[in-house]
Write a protein that binds this DNA or RNA. Structure first.
Length: 549
RNA sequence: GCGCCGGUAGCUCAGUGGAUAGAGCGUCGGCCUCCGGAGCCGAAGGUCGCAGGUUCGAAUCCUGUCCGGCGCGCCA
């Protein structure tokens, strides 16, 4: 069953057609899509459309007259009581209060499925995120991408897409070797090499190296950077996985750059580009003609020393991903990688994939501030705050809410001092508190042997606070559908906060458990529905919905 | 120099060409016989960086400009 908003969209589109057929409007066949929005002010109704104003230049008529023509040909969906015309040409829709109240029963029947609005064309989507190199623990710099990627996955799954969560890590370059050589230097009490790694975590790694590994690393024909680096990166990767588990972030697939090379994807990818005519040689290097697709300059894929570039692996990787049958690839990257998007898009297109099959949401920078000063962040120098430390200070739910509430394109300043001192003021607790209070009311009702009953809500839930709450709860499927469609999820916490707020007002104005048994049972049904909706919405953000706090 | 992303209330941020630009935090003032006060109600606080343009209508789109972040490698 489409949501009411979708039914209204279709009803207005149909009204355009029938008004045109009846000669009331003179419209071309190709029309803009109908926009249905929720007015900010309640006197403008529950939904509104600007269709008449949109059509004015096409029909060469005054918007108000178009609105009249549309409304007179409009078949209102079940649940909509009235369509009213308002200057300069809005059509405002007002819901039927009894229908609204009756939706409590429908909502409860959907249970955990409520809010998960299925798309008509589910896709197989690969979402790659975090992908931090295994040369050190996850830092608070990785936190935002982890949360944004995870919530995006949850929302895409909620509308029926099949999502694969993927972590790509680089084990093919000098960084791993440098990490290994840093361990060796510390072991021998020598200075750490110029490109080496510093910091407490490196010392801890040295202490954890199995004794039998040292002779193997230091044998005359051994490559100590390789031996120790391989061990250390595996160790670090396990730690990363543990940190992610603490966040509640899991991955389905861990792909290493080395594996992409080993399986021949890089060679085959370049060969495909060569066949397509986008590869040439110059100065002893092999180049990809990415400028053919709008990149600033062409890019080297094989250096003159014969070694492939990092970008060459990206080419192989995109081909490898699509070979697994995905309809869409999403790369959740930090915005510092924006310079590499153009060449990757170019490669995907040159390999024969559609530009809209691949997206790169670039997560804007987070500046972490402490006592008014930006905290420097460098894994190599050992100056950083780990993700685990962040969670100790502001809590996993607090962090999830914080990063989920902001558009990923916006740079944010996170004051650690403020965040820690204000962690109890985090809106997430307000929402969780509302959920706990719902649960508490339901417990009290159970003690008094009063059961929720949604059968008669149509006639009983008439109070403005009840009506406002239900109307808001019913919008969750639209919120989720929009978030999934836009691949932007930050409206969901807003929905939660508003739901909790409307519930608080309802709680203030409407005594749930009273001598009026029928009304008590109907209001309990609304409390149960609120609890359910809050739990479902919080779950989309990976945030728990506690019954007590 | 070129490119990408930002600039909205004291602070942190929403705002998908629509109606009187919103929320949280902070500040000030009210509200507890009764289902959870981690709450509720109210107030103060805005030239939407600036200047043009498009439009019936611009925080939103276009052009220019200023400020901030990031990126411009045969590094990753």
């Amino acid at each position: 069953m489409p949501t009411l908003r979708e039914q209204l969209r279709e009803a207005v589109a149909e009204a355009r057609r029938s008004a045109t057929a009846a000669g009331a409007l003179d419209l071309p066949a190709d029309l803009p899509s109908v926009s249905i929005e929720r007015p900010a002010r309640s006197e403008h109704g529950d939904f509104a459309t600007n269709a008449a104003m949109q059509l004015a230049p096409l029909a060469r008529m005054a918007p108000l007259r178009i609105a009249e023509a549309l409304t007179s040909h409009l078949q209102l969906p079940d649940g909509v009581a009235a369509a009213e015309i308002a200057p300069p040409g809005f059509i405002n829709f007002r819901l039927n209060s009894a229908w609204v109240a009756g939706q409590v029963e429908t909502l409860l029947a959907e249970g955990a499925r409520f809010g998960r609005a299925p798309v008509p064309d589910p896709q197989r989507i690969n979402v790659e995120f975090v992908s931090a190199n295994p040369t050190g623990p996850l830092t608070i710099g990785n936190a935002r991408g982890a949360f944004v990627g995870d919530v995006l996955c949850r929302v895409l799954e909620a509308v029926g897409h099949a999502v694969t969560r993927e972590y790509y890590f680089n084990d093919y370059n000098e960084q791993i070797r440098n990490l290994g050589l840093s361990l060796l230097a510390i072991r021998r009490a020598e200075p750490i090499p110029d490109d080496g790694y510093h910091g407490e975590y490196v010392n801890e790694l040295v202490a954890q190296v199995p004794e039998e590994l040292w002779p193997r690393a230091e044998a005359p024909d051994a490559d100590p950077g390789e031996v120790l680096g391989r061990w250390a990166s595996e160790r670090v990767r396990a730690g990363i996985e543990a940190s992610l588990a603490r966040l509640g972030v899991r991955f389905d697939v861990w792909t290493s750059e080395g594996a992409i090379h080993a399986a021949g994807w890089v060679e085959r990818g370049i060969a495909r580009l060569r066949e397509a005519g986008f590869i040439y040689e110059e100065g002893g290097a092999v180049w990809f003609r990415s400028t053919a697709f709008g990149d600033d300059k062409d890019r080297v894929v094989i250096r003159s020393n014969g070694r492939p570039t990092y970008f060459a692996a990206d080419i192989g990787y995109v081909a490898e991903k699509f070979s697994r049958g995905f309809d869409e690839l999403i790369y959740v990257w930090g915005e510092d990688h924006h310079g590499t998007v153009a060449r990757n898009r170019a490669a995907a297109i040159a390999l024969g994939f559609d530009a809209d099959q691949v997206r790169w949401p670039l997560i804007a920078w987070v500046r972490f501030i402490r006592d008014g000063v930006e905290i420097p962040m460098s894994k190599r120098s050992g100056e950083f705050i780990t993700l685990d430390e962040l969670l100790d200070e502001i809590g996993t739910d607090g962090a999830r809410w914080y990063f989920s509430s902001r558009a990923y394109t916006t740079g944010i300043d996170l004051d650690m001092t403020l965040a820690a001192s204000q962690s109890n003021e985090n809106p997430v607790y307000y929402v969780q508190y509302a959920h706990a209070r719902c649960a508490s009311i339901l417990r009290t009702a159970a003690e008094r042997s009063i059961a929720a009953d949604a059968a008669d809500t149509r006639s009983l839930l008439v109070h403005p606070a009840e009506q406002a709450l239900v109307r808001h709860l019913l919008t969750l499927p639209d919120v989720v559908a929009d978030a999934a469609s836009r691949r932007e999820t930050h409206d969901i916490p807003r929905f939660c906060h508003e739901a909790a707020h409307l519930f608080s007002q309802f709680y203030r104005d409407c005594r749930v458990l009273s001598d009026d048994v029928a009304l008590s049972r109907a209001r309990l049904a609304l409390v149960d529905a609120t609890r359910l909706v809050l739990a479902n919405a919080l779950d989309l953000m990976g945030i728990g919905a506690p019954d007590t706090m």
